[in-house]
Design a binder for these strands. Structure first.
Lengths: 157, 157
DNA sequence: TATTGTTATACTCTATAACTATA
DNA sequence: TATAGTTATAGAGTATAACAATA
């Protein structure tokens, strides 16, 4: 008998990535309820941080969600003063979205919470494991079309 | 101004874990449609592989889902001959679940597909990055109560 | 009366389709 | 007529609640 390599489903990276992803998403969503937000709201704030003044349709493409969802998300964020809607004077069909100061504050808070979660997640890892995890995810994010934002230019050379 | 460390939300591990987890789950779910399965069906097959003859309630706890969901999952898998239901003679309220040969075949196929996905995911990583990712996920899985099955003993020393 | 499984119902998230207003 | 946004509707997935059978 050929020493069957008895890999279990639960040992696959795919399974673990799926489950841990859902777990993290749930925990993060729970954090966000403190500000009456859902993860997709943060997605919109973050998109506007990258692309201020984008139209709702542009945001929908960026976030890869249906335009109708952007309406709902923007409605809520507008009602709490986190984003502003401005009609494009050149094409009055378009709603241009902008972060307000409040929106920027909110996004900073959300980012901070994510970093706290990051720290909790990696608490059981050795520093080099954590670094390796980060590096691997940089690659994965790039390889799978996630927004890999040019981060703050510390080294403009 | 103190060189603000302008970490973007999309650069956090939490965001990436959430998004990549969802992405992987979606791709895997797409694979499974070939056998008219959903990820939770595989979860049930896998649970029965670990705990043959478990009752539905026990499975629900193991899978951390509602008992009513186990009914639906088992209904479907029973109808396709992947699992068997046997009334516990000692307590006729309990339905004991078992994998059939067909179920074992199916689980093996599902595991294989997951391994293929794993390979695709890590294709862009260097071998040591892939290894580091695996090690980090071993830790994360253990730390967050995922089933960490004693894997095949290759090195029993 | 308590528990297992089942069925009925409801809720969340999100997409698709229908509609309004601009172009 | 085509497009941006909006509103209405529908579907997937899963939980909670009500119920039936057995203990």
């Amino acid at each position: 008998m050929p020493l069957m390599n008895d890999v279990k489903w639960v040992d696959t990276l795919s399974f673990r990535l799926g489950v841990l992803g859902a777990l993290v998403a749930d925990r993060y969503a729970a954090d966000l309820t403190a500000h009456d937000l859902k993860p997709k709201h943060v997605g919109l704030l973050s998109a506007l941080d990258v692309a201020p003044g984008a139209s709702q349709l542009e945001i929908a493409k960026l976030m890869r969600v249906a335009p109708s969802l952007v309406v709902t998300l923007a409605d809520h964020l507008e009602s709490t003063g986190a984003v502003e809607r401005l009609r494009d004077p050149a094409d009055r069909r378009r709603q241009l979205l902008y972060l307000t100061d409040r929106g920027r504050e909110l996004l900073a808070w959300c980012t901070d919470r994510a970093l706290v979660l990051d720290a909790e997640l990696t608490a059981g890892l050795t520093p080099d494991q954590a670094a390796a995890l980060g590096a691997a995810f940089d690659r994965l994010a790039a390889a799978h079309g996630l927004p890999v934002r040019g981060r703050t230019r510390r080294d403009p050379t």
